[in-house]
Design a binder for these strands. Structure first.
Lengths: 251, 251
DNA sequence: GATATAAATATGTCCGGACAAATTCTAGAG
DNA sequence: CTCTAGAATTTGTCCGGACATATTTATATC
């Protein structure tokens, strides 16, 4: 329990990140148009009373998101006003990410405490063997008897009241919804990869073992981007899922 | 050929990049085992007679590749000894989407005229049996001999000069770059799905037949969103690609 | 040997400065 | 009006310093 890394408990954010996030927020709020320039390093130094170094780190932080591009002699130009993989095309709200499509429901199959193996420990950024709350279940569409995915949710112990909700199968859904309230969420890291469907899961999903599947892993961070709220890992048989999006070029 | 991005032609390299590349080369050459530590900042300063700032930039450059992880109080630890999938983040520039990552190149294997079967005809929204220009090839990383993907490009006949460029293997790259000039592109429809790697492709990619793979299909439309410029279908062995993104909630 | 504490080490944040390189702006000439 | 050259601006590279924070190592005690 005490093995949870203290970095997960950090409260304060470095200056450069705070300013960077502020700039990101402004861009996403439409305050800076595409092709417009962000404040220069010099302007940021004046506005926030920081060194040029910190201003550069802040802009670097923003650039890392892909929203802007920095150009020597020119400035920092806005390239996008939405995050590259915005959820809107696929799913509308955070709550829909995992659990509730318009017409699906999540059927919890298991709710327990587990000790994380090496892979999961790495995913959650804790030590192997750490205790963790685990909830697993399938996602079902009402018109179709075959589940569309199996999801495992891993919740690092926070020692708070939400933990208790997770531990009880009957309240686990509520706990997930509560934990994933969009007011709590600052960032989601998502990973999509292909894999083969393990036999145990194949059976539960009514699909063929070792057939192609898509694995989506999402790590949900809080507003300060330090606290890992939970990790959700969902496996979709290939025929039941494809990730579609429409992209518009920068110009 | 002259259209290759000018950044590929840079002669001088900043110190931090030179040292970073050297470290990368050492890792890829097996000189640093997984979990081992790279030279500390201090050691790099001594070894290369550089400031701490430059040492940090060098290590930052290496960290960006995903090969290592820096940890305060600990050092810089090797996490991989081969390059992770280079298409880690959604790539900003249209020209990079398919052909040119920062450090990859596209090696054309075939260029011919085909008659579309039913699946492809549907994809290109034409009649089965329609003639179509086809270019196929693999994508290679300089540090790694294994191809990372196989791409098939289908170009509906436009009866224009670009068509002729497509038909010649030696000018096909140029044709793709020209057709995908971002001034021409109005929309891209993208589809990501899991599949099994067909035997023929598996062999060309140095991977196992029927192993998990990711298929990305992209349809490129012109500015008026009416003309389908081309369709690109790329298959990535699972271990060589995962699609990562960072999402920020609407707020 | 196990445990606790202190010291040392290594990276992270932030400050300041200087010069280089790329881009933009301005003024002058034709 | 267009073009060119020079100046100004903006980011990039690199130097130095200081303090903070996290991890590892060393030492003392039981």
């Amino acid at each position: 329990m005490t093995k949870i890394k203290s970095s997960l408990k950090n409260k304060s954010m470095p200056k450069y990140q705070r300013i960077g996030e502020k700039l990101i927020g402004q861009i996403l709020a439409g305050k800076h148009e595409i092709d417009s320039l962000l404040p220069t390093e010099k302007q940021l130094c004046t506005a926030y009373k920081i060194s040029r170094h910190t201003a550069r780190e802040a802009l670097r932080y923003v650039e890392k998101t892909g929203l802007v591009e920095r150009r020597q002699g020119s400035g920092t130009q806005v390239k996008r006003t939405s995050m590259p993989e915005q959820i809107n095309e696929f799913i509308n709200s955070i709550n829909d990410l995992l659990l509730f499509g318009k017409r699906t429901r999540f059927d919890i199959r298991i709710s327990d405490m587990i000790q994380l193996d090496a892979d999961l420990a790495e995913l959650l950024d804790v030590e192997t063997g750490t205790d963790c709350i685990h909830v697993g279940g399938i996602r079902i569409e009402p018109h179709d008897k075959k589940p569309i995915s199996y999801s495992n949710i891993y919740r690092p112990q926070h020692m708070d009241s939400v933990d208790e909700l997770f531990k009880d199968k009957d309240t686990a859904i509520y706990a997930v919804v509560k934990a994933l309230d969009s007011n709590n969420i600052g960032k989601i890291e998502q990973q999509i990869e292909a894999c083969l469907l393990p036999a145990g899961l194949a059976e539960q999903l009514g699909a063929e073992a070792n057939s192609a599947a898509m694995k989506i892993t999402r790590r949900y961070f809080d507003k300060e981007l330090k606290d890992l709220i939970l990790v959700a890992q969902s496996i979709y048989p290939a025929k039941r899922f494809s990730h579609s999006s429409v992209l518009y070029p920068d110009s």
